[in-house]
Amino acid sequence: MTVFAPGFFASSPVHVALVIGGISAVVCGLVGTFTVLRGQSYAGHALGDLAVTGGSASFLANVSPLWGFAGIGVIAAGIMDMIGIRRPRGRDLATGIVRGAGLGLAALFLYWDTTSSSTTGVSITILFGSMFTTSTSVVPVVLAFGLPAVAIVAILFRPLLLSSVSPELAAVRGVRVRLTGLACLLAIALAVSLSAITVGAILSTALLIGPAAIALRVTNTPGRAMVTAALVGLGATWIGIVLAYDSFYWPPSHDGWPVSFFIVALIFFSFLVSQLFGRRPGRVIRAEG
């Protein structure tokens, strides 16, 4: 058995998948580190659920689901900030309300999609990703969403870090805490939209949160955590693409296994390994009280 099945490097869908998946994984790693660091994983989950709404709406509008994923994410981020994502209780309410309304719409849109469209598999595309069926023309859009997301966390690196330690400390240093938080939420929304096109809407948080959680386990500084998360995500995505291509020859049917399964499984096992064997930085029992 060969690692790279025949035709892997010649296949155009594989090229597109490697590029889109690679960019998405890197963006998710960089943004995901701050998502976990700031305790905003719940927002990532909600945005992932809402991506289903956006994706199903974009099929009705006959545009790439990426537009729907990102569009709904940005709107939802704004609403969540407005309802009051900064207070813990407000945050639960905000997430719950926005998520509930969004999933209701998703049910309606998916129903229309499946009744009006002759192509089957619309829901599969939205829910489990569409890397192999995405056209080359989407690559610039992926870059157009990914670059601002990375720019936000790079430019706001220190203010974001300080306000995750303590919003009050940040405010005292002159950081505009609310604006910084909203920008971070937008970066998360954009990263989730890329994740949704790679591994699918319902699995999108796996690529956002998983590599970041692994990185935060095994590194000691925020900068190293970001780089590690990006590399872990990239590795899982590219290996997942190779395995998905190979799986075309695997049982039960010769259709191949979904790539999102491989990516998420790889991330999950890496996470388990990091939990079991990762060093726990600085966890020293100190004599002094």
Partner: peptide
């Protein structure tokens, strides 16, 4: 890191 943020925690860009 936390002490360094006291110096430039409000500055933009990667330190």
């Amino acid at each position: 890191d936390l002490v360094a943020l006291g110096l430039d925690g409000n500055k933009l860009g990667i330190p």
